[in-house]
Design a protein around this nucleic acid. Structure first.
Lengths: 231, 231
DNA sequence: ATATATTTGTCATGTGATTGTCATATAATC
DNA sequence: GATTATATGACAATCACATGACAAATATAT
């Protein structure tokens, strides 16, 4: 019955109507709320996958409401698109500061609205992917908990080795040169000796070796390293 | 609905218009973005096959944006053509350093623009081909994984033999003299004994022979070697 | 604030794999 | 059979990576 839906929060019924129609045409389910109180009730009832939130609201203002949503762990991952009346620069900035994922200035075309929604959903999907738990056989890495489990046991791992393992688990089976690893794991604007990668590879292997998983990190002589799931 | 398209990133609407029109005439789909943030959203929404990126942008500068794109594995293979206002030499250099694939100086003719685009797309296509998995019967070579599989089993192969096999698989059915092989596989500016090629051919054959595939590497007496799929 | 522990990057050294060359064996051609 | 071209095994030099140690930098505890 209730698909993934979008919550529209705006005090003007005409605008809600208009948005609702545009969304329906684009194949989205929508639910309306005229103010923050009723919006909260709707969210409690069922989590929307995205919220269209008017800047100006009676009672709790849109910006305050957004701030509350982004503070609550239950709702903070829901993307918010702010609807602003004027294209005032200050508003944009404050909106994004509050944690809105995008803003759109009235008046706008349905096409633009849908494009923004798609973009935001796309982005949040890939962000969730970033925080996704990665599991390979009996090795699992949980980015949100910053934890690595090996055969059901938590293993002690340093920050750099954690990032290195995370990177490898996200991109298995592919060879990366030391420089590519430095770019991805250390970030591009540090100057670090290429050979340092070797050392951290060794440290990672040492950890994996505690449970005979060191073969996952493979050396490709003359090229770099590869994280492989295959035997 | 959405074909392969080109993303235009420029803060001046007039220039975007102009570019859009030129591209349309040449048969390309185009999408516009006025700044880096919206460009990013557009990219997340759908990967463009090429990006036209203005040097000067409000907020994140074009050069910084290019750097970011080239760092992210998701986007780094998208070719970028930088649009620079003046033909300043320093800009060119910095642009190419950042990883832009070409630059073009305003003002430019639509003809020139299209020519550059075609050239860059051609180049990137052949680069992608460079990373393409090559399969011949039960022999497969994967450059991105830097792996050779023979009858489903990974085979152990040294760097030079890998390059040699890669070269042959890219250019089968053609005879190459020892010198041509040296140029292609070792690179043009090394002085190495011609007979050394024989030795590496032998080493390659030895590997292939583990699975009775040594007949693929054939000697053409008095001329050189050939990699042939035929019996 | 100070002490202590952890993490980090670099280096020196060890080790094994790879490479180019040569000497010799083998095969093809006339 | 003589000549020429290629195949092959052996070998030393080199190269790339692994590893342990260490000091500087960071984080954490007291």
């Amino acid at each position: 019955m209730s698909e993934q839906h979008i919550l529209i929060v705006d005090d003007e019924a005409a605008i809600r109507e208009m948005l609702h129609l545009s969304l329906k045409k684009a194949g989205y389910e929508a639910i309306e709320a005229p103010d923050a109180r009723q919006a909260r009730a709707a969210i409690y009832n069922q989590m929307p996958m995205l919220i269209l939130l008017d800047w100006m609201l009676p009672g709790t203002s849109g910006i305050e409401f957004a701030r509350q949503l982004k503070k609550d762990p239950q709702t903070q991952q829901i993307p918010i698109i702010m609807l602003t009346a004027k294209g005032e620069e200050g508003d944009k900035v404050r909106g994004l500061e509050v944690g809105a994922d995008d803003y759109i200035t009235k008046p706008f075309s349905p096409r633009e609205l849908i494009a923004r929604i798609k973009a935001v959903l796309r982005r949040s999907a890939s962000l969730q992917q970033e925080n996704q738990q990665l599991v390979i056989k009996e090795l699992q890495l949980d980015p949100s908990e910053h934890r690595v489990m090996l055969k059901g046991q938590e293993v002690q791992i340093g920050p750099t080795e954690f990032r290195l393992l995370h990177f490898f688990m996200k991109n298995p089976e592919r060879v990366y040169s030391r420089n590519q690893v430095l770019d991805q794991v250390w970030g591009g604007n540090v100057y670090i000796e290429e050979r340092t990668v070797d050392v951290h590879i060794r440290r990672l292997r040492k950890i994996l070796a505690e449970h005979q998983y060191e073969h996952l990190v493979q050396t490709v002589r003359g090229v770099g390293y590869r994280f492989s799931i295959r035997e």
